[in-house]
Amino acid sequence: MLQLANYLSHHGTGLVGMLLTRNGLAQDGRWTSREQWLLYSKLIVGLSEDDYRQMLLTQRSGGDPAELVRQRIEDFRLRM
């Protein structure tokens, strides 16, 4: 999580990153993600393997897989 946060910057890759894991972010990862958002305005969205599968199925059926990412961002912001 912190390695990803170190890559995010105004002058480089931007301030938004996604981290794909098997089971989503663990509790300490969620805390780190919140800390990065509050202190440094860096948004790190955690996606699980199931999220990835859902995005693939959505794409195959002609939908927009980015909708799931938007939903995860909204979920993150509502938990703040």
Rank of each mutant, 00 (worst) to 15 (best):
T21N: 07
G24H: 00
R60A: 15
R79D: 12
V69D: 03
H10M: 07
R30G: 04
R53T: 12
I73F: 02
A5I: 11
T21P: 02
I73S: 02
G46T: 01
T58E: 15
L15E: 07
L2M: 11
I44T: 03
S33M: 10
H10V: 06
Q36S: 06
P65K: 05
L19M: 10
T21W: 01
V45W: 00
D50R: 09
N23S: 12
R70I: 03
T21I: 03
A66F: 08
R79E: 12
D64K: 11
T32I: 14
S61V: 07
L4S: 08
G63S: 12
R22Y: 06
Q3N: 12
L25H: 10
E67G: 08
Q36G: 00
E49Q: 15
D28Q: 06
H10F: 07
W37Y: 15
H11C: 08
V16Q: 01
E49K: 10
L2E: 15
R79P: 00
T32R: 08
A66W: 06
Y52S: 08
L15G: 04
R53G: 11
L15K: 13
R77D: 01
L56A: 13
D51C: 06
N23W: 05
S41F: 03
G14R: 02
L2P: 04
L38K: 13
R22A: 07
L8N: 04
M1I: 09
R70Q: 14
T58D: 10
T13N: 12
S48L: 01
L43A: 04
V45L: 15
V69Y: 12
L57P: 01
G12Y: 02
G63R: 13
V16M: 04
I73C: 06
G29H: 09
Y7S: 14
S48E: 08
T58V: 11
D75M: 05
L19W: 04
L2F: 10
Y40T: 02
R53V: 14
G46P: 00
G12I: 01
G17N: 03
Y40I: 01
W37E: 04
A26Y: 08
G17E: 00
D51R: 05
D75T: 09
R72W: 03
G14Y: 05
E35P: 00
I44N: 02
R77F: 01
S33V: 01
V69N: 03
Y7V: 07
L38M: 09
S48G: 06
W37P: 00
Y7K: 11
M55G: 03
E35N: 05
R72F: 03
Q54F: 04
L78H: 06
N6R: 15
L8Q: 03
V69C: 12
G46Y: 01
D75Q: 13
L43Y: 01
L2C: 07
L43R: 02
P65A: 12
T13F: 09
P65N: 08
L38N: 13
S61L: 13
V69F: 15
Q54E: 15
V69P: 03
Y40D: 09
E35K: 09
L2A: 15
S61Q: 15
G14P: 03
W31G: 00
N6F: 09
D51M: 08
A5W: 02
I44Y: 00
Q36N: 10
Q71F: 06
L8A: 00
Q54W: 04
G24C: 06
Q3D: 14
Y40E: 09
Q59F: 15
M1R: 07
L47Q: 05
L43F: 05
L56I: 15
M55A: 03
A66M: 14
A66Y: 08
D51P: 04
